[in-house]
């Protein structure tokens, strides 16, 4: 077990730098195994230059976020989809 592992919920502040709404409650679907859940429940590894979100079921990388302070790179290729509540 990785003792540095966190939950997606823990990096909600970082996600709010990118998304306009709180996505910790957003639905996620893993492209590798099809597992559905919430972004807040994903496994997060943040002890690196970027932050890596993994599937709690199959450990596939779903989302990667990196920043150099001026720009943010968001890699979502491991996600089949995100399900976001519609504003209003």
């Amino acid at each position: 077990m990785d003792e540095l592992m966190l939950d997606g919920n823990a990096v909600g502040g970082l996600l709010l730098e990118v998304f306009a709404e709180d996505v910790t409650r957003a639905g996620s679907c893993c492209d590798a195994c099809g597992a559905t859940g919430q972004v807040g429940a994903l496994r997060v590894h943040s002890n690196a230059p970027g932050v890596v979100f993994r599937c709690p079921r199959c450990d596939a990388v779903l989302l990667r976020l990196a920043s150099d302070g001026k720009r943010v790179w968001l890699d979502l290729r491991g996600l089949r989809h995100l399900e976001l509540p519609r504003a209003g």
Binding site: D7, G13, T24, Q38, G40
Partner: peptide, 9 residues
């Protein structure tokens, strides 16, 4: 300080 954060928990 910034927040509140984390609607999941």
């Amino acid at each position: 300080l910034r927040g509140p954060i984390g609607g999941y928990f």
